[in-house]
């Protein structure tokens, strides 16, 4: 079955038709060309597909698009205000937290969710918040440094953390 869905994506209202069996990641990447959201396992383990739905970090690979009807979705493309990076994104750039960058979108979303609920996390809290986001390049240290730096920079409420 195909149904008509409406949801806010990165602060903009979207209306589209999607078959019931489509997952959120497929709709984002294949239908809406929002390819910033990555996938590396499609089993909920790697975290590269993490997005916010109504401000809550979820795995878009395991979320049916139909379940997001009427909700607000934030992807990595929604974190910057235009070309102005959020404090967290800026911190990732400056801390060397990006190597191949394939994990970066998911990391940023998971860290955004953390800083929303806990604006000044400890290092252990940062590490615990990112435990479901695998990175094979960096060894995590620069990513953790970036999140801590952003939290100190007052990035508890980054510009576009929950869409509009």
């Amino acid at each position: 079955m195909t149904r008509h869905l409406s949801m806010s994506i990165n602060g903009e209202p979207h209306e589209f038709d999607a078959a019931d069996h489509r997952t959120l990641i497929e709709v984002l990447r294949d239908d809406l060309a929002l390819t910033g959201t990555k996938d590396a396992c499609r089993q909920g383990v790697c975290g590269s597909c993490t997005v916010l739905v109504d401000g809550v970090a979820v795995r878009s690979c395991l979320m049916l698009a139909a379940r997001c009807q009427g909700k607000s979705v934030t992807t990595v493309e929604g974190l910057a205000a235009g070309d102005r990076l959020s404090a967290l994104q800026q911190a990732f750039v400056e801390a060397g937290a990006v190597q191949c960058g394939y994990c970066t979108s998911g990391m940023l979303i998971a860290a955004t969710a953390l800083l929303e609920s806990n604006p000044s996390p400890t290092e252990v809290e940062v590490r615990a918040a990112l435990v479901g986001n695998l990175c094979r390049c960096t060894g995590y240290a620069p990513i953790v440094r970036a999140v801590l730096a952003a939290s100190r920079a007052g990035a508890g409420h980054p510009v576009a953390a929950v869409g509009s």
Partner: peptide
């Protein structure tokens, strides 16, 4: 020196 592609990568625009 910051890597040249970092801004593309943190905005999800880098094409893999």
């Amino acid at each position: 020196v910051r890597r040249g592609d970092a801004a593309e990568k943190v905005t999800g625009r880098y094409a893999y």
